[in-house]
């Protein structure tokens, strides 16, 4: 894509500022509002998602974090009551416009949901299906990649002897790592994670967090969480949301040390 095309879509000013700071952003959310029927769930959201690194969307339950996440891969399309205004720019396109190939878009945005939802079938079937959707037909290559991705999420030693077992036979923490492997197998640019540790025990949570730190060197990760400690441990960039608005955003070092708004101060207080 040419540079002119790029700048015609995304605010030139933003890109210049980013570049002067040495930042490279992958997703630009511009003036995004979202209505769920008559109720407004997102209010004029402005947010940049960095390439490579973990952007944490922090906030209390029901503040619109998950909804924002679902606009990134257009899962909001499933609900006919949802209407949006504004734009989300990703790879030189506004992904909220009608003429976007949503299937291709979703393959660039891997999703890890709150609870693991393995597909019916075996452990290897779960990743094989992702590979099939990606267009990889050769059985040998599928098998190679299944091994590669299971190793990548540090699950190989635990499951290598039972790849043909039902994915439901795994513990919930293992299932979540399998779902992560499945998401990686579609070769996304971005990993969207919706409170991915909320159903897990502390040890499994820690494993997922370690994975994320490793993966953030390769991928842009958007992590939704309401756990302050998790945000502090993982965030390279944080946005605090409250009732559909991004109230504060910035680097965690600035943000957590010098909260500007009362709401965020309260949240930090309660979170501790």
């Amino acid at each position: 894509m040419s540079l002119e095309n790029n700048t015609s879509l995304i605010d030139e000013e933003i890109i210049r500022k980013d570049e002067s700071k040495g930042l490279h952003n992958l997703i630009y959310v511009k003036d995004l509002s979202l209505w769920h029927g008559k109720q407004q769930t997102l209010k004029n959201v402005e947010l940049n998602i960095r390439d490579k690194g973990i952007t944490v969307l922090l906030g209390p339950s029901g503040c619109g974090k998950t909804t924002l996440l679902k606009t990134f891969n257009r899962l909001t399309d499933l609900d006919p009551d949802i209407k949006t205004t504004g734009s989300i720019f990703f790879e030189d396109k506004d992904i909220l416009t009608k003429n976007i190939d949503v299937y291709a878009l979703r393959q660039k945005m891997g999703l890890l949901s709150q609870r693991p939802h393995p597909l019916p079938g075996t452990i290897s079937d779960n990743i094989r299906y992702a590979l099939k959707l990606k267009g990889i037909k050769s059985k040998v290559e599928q098998d190679d990649r299944i091994e590669y991705y299971i190793k990548k999420v540090a699950l190989w030693d635990e499951v290598k002897d039972r790849l043909k077992y039902s994915a439901n036979s795994l513990s919930i923490g293992q299932q979540q790592r399998l779902c992560l492997a499945r998401g990686l197998a579609i070769e996304p640019r971005v990993i969207l994670a919706d409170e991915p540790t909320s159903a897990l025990d502390p040890i499994s949570s820690r494993k997922i967090e370690e994975q994320f730190q490793e993966l953030s060197k390769e991928f842009a990760i958007v992590l939704v969480t309401h756990i302050l400690r998790q945000a502090k441990r993982l965030a390279d960039y944080t946005a605090f949301m409250y009732y559909g608005e991004v109230v504060e955003k910035g680097k965690p070092s600035d943000l957590f040390e010098n909260p500007k708004t009362e709401i965020f101060k309260d949240y930090l207080q309660v979170g501790h």
């Binding site: 891969n73 899962l75 499933l78 299937y103 291709a104 979703r106 393959q107 945005m109 891997g110 999703l111 949901s113 939802h117 597909l119 299906y129 992702a130 959707l133 990606k134 779902c179 499945r182 998401g183 579609i186 969207l192």
Partner: peptide
């Protein structure tokens, strides 16, 4: 949603 999110 998980399946759709893989691009199915």
């Amino acid at each position: 949603e998980s399946t759709l999110a893989m691009g199915a």
